[in-house]
């Protein structure tokens, strides 16, 4: 078991192998994410029941929560890929980490925007310094920092390594930031009503939510592979196999 994993890990490090295998995976992921997202959206908008307190604005949860979960896991994945790139000097890991950042930033933005829009009917204001929203805003700043650092270096390798260190520092800080923001929030305004914390959600509410979460993950997988493949083509464009591949089309 361990041996096959190690062998797989090493093959993953070869850009060509990664390019070939993801080329076979992408259609499956794309179809799965399209089906799940369309089914989940229709279910969420048209079939799920409304919330007894918040009415139909509750339907925003079906985007807000998956985007927020994804935004955090993408940051974690980015830091892990960065660490792999730093420790084992694996080029593919660097490229995966680089491809994560813009997707994660857009997911964070979706979570922030939907949270703000949801806040208007719920709290009566477009922006409330709610603990979760504030933590998301800080996460967005962290993503911007990583993206800015990536592009600040002339050499792609140094940019990748520097942003790997920054994302590792960020991952250590995210729990501290989350904890401190939550504490700050209870200090300044006692938590009267939080958007997503419901003790028990009936199945007809959480099943579409689960479908959306899985759909968002599949979508992320698809885009991540597409971006990483482009990154491979760009960085390996002097190699024989990439030139053959590009001229064929």
């Amino acid at each position: 078991m361990w041996k096959t994993f190690v062998a797989w890990f090493h093959r993953m490090g070869s850009p060509k192998w990664f390019y070939d295998i993801t080329g076979r995976w992408i259609p499956w992921f794309a179809v799965a994410s399209a089906l799940l997202l369309i089914a989940g959206t229709v279910w969420a908008l048209a079939f799920a029941p409304e919330d007894y307190q918040q009415g139909n604005s509750f339907r925003i949860i079906y985007i807000h929560v998956p985007a927020a979960i994804l935004a955090q896991s993408i940051f974690f994945l980015m830091a892990m890929a960065g660490a792999v790139g730093l420790i084992w000097k694996m080029k593919v890991a660097d490229m995966v980490a680089k491809s994560c950042a813009p997707i994660g930033a857009s997911m964070t933005f979706i979570a922030l925007f939907t949270g703000a829009v949801w806040g208007k009917p719920t709290w009566g204001a477009w922006w409330v310094w709610d603990a979760r929203l504030t933590a998301m805003l800080i996460l967005l700043f962290l993503y911007f920092g990583v993206i800015a650092l990536q592009s600040a270096f002339d050499s792609k390798q140094s940019g990748a390594r520097a942003s790997a260190i920054l994302s590792l520092v960020g991952v250590v800080n995210i729990p501290i930031i989350k904890y401190s923001v939550e504490w700050w929030n209870t200090l300044h305004q006692p938590a009267t009503f939080t958007l997503t914390e419901k003790p028990a959600m009936p199945a007809e509410m959480w099943v579409p939510l689960l479908v959306m979460v899985i759909g968002f993950y599949c979508f992320f997988g698809t885009i991540l592979m597409m971006r990483t493949r482009n990154e491979i083509l760009e960085r390996e464009k002097r190699t024989h196999w990439v030139q053959g591949l590009l001229s064929k089309k």
Binding site: I138, L142, G145, L166, V169, N173, I176, I177, V181
Partner: peptide, 8 residues
């Protein structure tokens, strides 16, 4: 890079 890390 640094200001978000200063928040806590």
């Amino acid at each position: 890079l640094i200001l978000p890390l200063y928040i806590p």
